[in-house]
């Protein structure tokens, strides 16, 4: 018996080892090292690092550029929530409860852009929205209007960048949310039909509460994944410009680390982003109970 236990222990370790090793070397240890770097001024190359205490963290809240970055990040989050969460949620409700055929066809088609790289998306939108030679500008010219050069305005650039990620994740989030709606028991839906309760009441009072956990999961995913997704179009189209107008916490971290070689500032910003994501993780566990606790 004892022998068998020992054997089991060895087996368990052997099976978990590859994953644990990769996660340890490339995720856990790097988090600790980034935390360490956030207390130093360094340029990624120099043999010595200067200890500066909390200076890098303080500059996140005092430096005007950093303040702009934080505000932009909030703007991104709000826009992502509307475009990549509320819109697909609305459409999934339409497909589930308001039409009676072609559900699968819509699912298959909506998902297609999720297969493509965001670099392709960025290229496509910089063509569609090109102020000189793009189709949108072409139509507007015919109506006597001009498309403003949106890359010159931070706010407009942010909107276009979010639209690019929306093009990519709309179908993905739609599929997730539609699946969630599918788990609302059919007999409840039928019962409300018999009692001729209006559809919107049924959705508000029954579907939303029952679908809370998956909806919240997609909401958190929209923020966590969305902020990482917008990095690609920012990097391809605007490089954060004009004057940091379309940058956000993640792109600014990259800029500090690999363009300006201000490793300390980059690390502090990365840690702050990480803490925000941890708060979201905590909320997810709290609201979406059972997701992570099923293997006791």
């Amino acid at each position: 018996m004892n022998n068998r236990n020992k054997k089991n222990k060895v087996l368990t370790i052997a099976y978990l080892f590859p994953t644990a090793l990769i996660l340890l070397v490339f995720i856990i240890a790097p988090i600790i090292y980034t935390f360490y770097l956030s207390f130093f001024n360094w340029n990624l190359i120099a043999p010595t690092k200067d200890f500066v205490g909390l200076e890098n963290y303080l500059s996140i809240f005092t430096d005007p550029v950093n303040r702009k970055i934080i505000l932009n990040t909030v703007f991104y989050i709000l826009l992502l929530l509307v475009l990549n969460f509320l819109v697909p949620y609305f459409i999934s409700i339409i497909v589930k409860f308001f039409i009676s055929k072609m559900q699968t066809a819509y699912k298959i088609i909506f998902f297609i852009p999720s297969l493509f790289s965001l670099v392709v998306g960025a290229m496509l939108f910089s063509w569609i929205m090109n102020p000189v030679s793009g189709p949108v500008a072409f139509f507007m010219r015919n109506l006597g209007l001009t498309l403003p050069n949106w890359t010159n305005s931070g706010a407009m650039a942010v909107v276009v960048i979010c639209l690019i990620t929306n093009w990519k994740v709309f179908g993905y989030n739609f599929v997730l949310l539609l699946t969630g709606l599918g788990s609302v028991p059919q007999n409840i839906i039928d019962a409300t039909k018999m009692d001729s309760i209006p559809k919107w009441r049924m959705i508000w009072d029954i579907v939303f509460p029952l679908n809370k956990s998956i909806a919240f999961y997609v909401l958190i995913l929209t923020i966590v994944q969305g902020l990482q997704y917008v990095f690609t179009p920012i990097s391809v189209i605007t490089q954060g410009g004009p004057y940091y107008g379309s940058s956000n916490a993640l792109y600014h971290t990259y800029l500090n680390a690999f363009v300006l070689y201000k490793t300390g500032n980059a690390s502090a910003l990365a840690i702050v982003t990480f803490v925000i994501f941890l708060v979201l993780l905590y909320l997810e566990i709290k609201f979406v109970e059972g997701r992570t606790s099923r293997y006791e």
């Binding site: 978990l16 994953t19 644990a20 996660l23 490339f26 995720i27 240890a29 790097p30 988090i31 090292y33 980034t34 770097l37 990624l44 966590v224 902020l227 990482q228 916490a249 993640l250 971290t253 990259y254 680390a257 490793t263 980059a266 690390s267 910003l269 990365a270 840690i271 982003t273 990480f274 994501f277 941890l278 979201l280 993780l281 992570t292 606790s293 293997y295 006791e296």
Partner: peptide, 22 residues
């Protein structure tokens, strides 16, 4: 088991910026 599973799954929430320099 629960703790290790949780630790594995939590890595989904690690932004790439916090690991990219190391």
């Amino acid at each position: 088991k629960k703790l290790i599973y949780f630790a594995f799954i939590s890595t989904i929430f690690v932004p790439f910026t916090v690991v990219m320099i190391p």
